[in-house]
């Protein structure tokens, strides 16, 4: 499973916009490059990234081959109630990588 790093604040006040950050270690091989022997390196990318907060989708991206390696996303989330923030990456073969962090709203 690819290595991931996520950052969600432990606690937040209700109504606050909190910064969510997520990064995954992935080559994001675009399929247009050749190796030293001149043979094409096959495309190998992550196709989807979604973030859900307490079960509801809050952020979703469709990734394309032009993206650089180790895609990093940062966005703001309005804290309403305590719940898990789930991250889900899907690569082209359908392999799913997940990570989760609890956000407590006071």
């Amino acid at each position: 499973m690819p290595n991931t790093r996520i950052r969600v604040p432990k606690t937040a006040k209700a109504g606050d916009a909190v910064e969510i950050r997520a990064i995954i270690q992935h080559p994001m091989e675009n399929g247009f490059r050749l190796d030293s022997q001149g043979t094409a390196i096959p495309v190998e990318i992550i196709t989807d990234f979604t973030c859900t907060y307490d079960g509801g989708e809050v952020f979703s991206v469709k990734l394309e081959p032009g993206l650089s390696a180790n895609p990093y996303f940062s966005f703001y989330l309005k804290a309403t109630k305590s719940g898990p923030v789930d991250f889900r990456w899907v690569d082209q073969d359908g392999t799913i990588t997940t990570a989760t962090e609890q956000l407590d709203v006071t």
Binding site: N3, R5, R7, R21, I23, Q25, A69, N70, Y72, S74
Partner: peptide
């Protein structure tokens, strides 16, 4: 200290 991609390797 979060976005530096090298830290992925440090964690690994």
């Amino acid at each position: 200290d979060f976005a530096n991609p090298g830290l992925l390797w440090v964690e690994e």
